[in-house]
Nucleic acid binder design. Sequence first.
DNA 1: AGCAACTAGCTGAACGATCAGCTAGTAATT
DNA 2: AATTACTAGCTGATCGTTCAGCTAGTTGCT
Lengths: 209, 209
Amino acid sequence: MATRDGARTREAILRAAEELFARQGFDATSMQQIAAAAGVARATPSYFFGSKAGLYDAVLARAVDRAQTAIVRAYEARDGSGAPEDAVEAYVDALLSFFGSDQIFVCLIQRESLGDGSRVSEFFGRFVDDAVAALGPTAAEAGVSPQRLVLDLVALCWYPFAHEHTLVPALGLDPRDPAFAVEQRRHLGDLMRALAALRSSSSGRTQTP
Amino acid sequence: MATRDGARTREAILRAAEELFARQGFDATSMQQIAAAAGVARATPSYFFGSKAGLYDAVLARAVDRAQTAIVRAYEARDGSGAPEDAVEAYVDALLSFFGSDQIFVCLIQRESLGDGSRVSEFFGRFVDDAVAALGPTAAEAGVSPQRLVLDLVALCWYPFAHEHTLVPALGLDPRDPAFAVEQRRHLGDLMRALAALRSSSSGRTQTP
DNA sequence: AGCAACTAGCTGAACGATCAGCTAGTAATT
DNA sequence: AATTACTAGCTGATCGTTCAGCTAGTTGCT
């Protein structure tokens, strides 16, 4: 029963490949390494996925799928309810928990963004549409464009995980520490509240106060 | 005179290599490519730099040097003078102009941070020390830790360039547009002022705006 | 039930291409 | 003459891909 199971073998190869592609990158990872890590023969990954590029595409599609599933769940978890001020904290929560739980996704996307990004442009298009729709009211309240709010929030949530071996440890911080996520969420919520307060008090564009 | 010039050839090789390493990564770049781009024979880069790894180290050291020079210049350009509130805008200005002008540095560091970051940890250590010292007063005024302020500012300035082919174009933004830098600087300055205002109104701190 | 025909899963071996590094050598500069 | 600059050619290793072949499991026929 377990001796020959195409689905299970496929899964093992995908699992091994995504780990290696994420850690080492496409070019630094050989089919030999993938096969060894998956516990199959050298030719088996090619048998199932046709080519190295085909295997990589499958790995990337899988990671993107995980992200989209997580996003959908996060949106429907607070569908409709909640004040627009809380939207930022909920959004930050969702981003931080997903990025923190799926390091492989972060690495793969980071590597893609060092290329031309064409393989993930569709994903980002949908992501932006959803995010702008969800954060539009909050952005209006804070007096910033929705695009800039999304950019800021994603940047602030993404960076700590994308640079957890460079700037972040040099600052003495650890993005995997639960306390970090808690503090980050509160910190970004403070920022939004502060912006909204500044906006309502000065009632216009701040040129030179 | 110009037919045989070690310094000039070295320079040409470094220039070609940094471009290719940044665009394609270490493993996807061959010595053959580098030599062709530099206009020399295949063995010449090895002659000057010993090995591919040695050439890469030289390229990285050069890029890090450019960054450190830019940082030093930015600090001494406003040494001592200026209000602590302006420190953020000056800092953001320096980061944005350097990241925008040296895309190769951004790519190389981004690739390093996908590894273990050991080759650039020294650079980040010094960078953090300087930044924390420069932004300490501003951070205290805004009621956040200097580390978090540095993390936020670097994340907000870095991300647009590190993802200029993925999320940023999906948002309809262009980090190379001069208007983007202007708006980003003002936006982050607003954030800091808003935080400081929130801080002074909620606690006993007195601060004249 | 039993046997033959067929398919899916998987493999080891071999292919041509390309890689980085080395050696022995030539040509220009000092 | 000596040193530096530079190169063509070679080498062993490794790369991704291909392919014939083996095995386990399923289906169809009697």
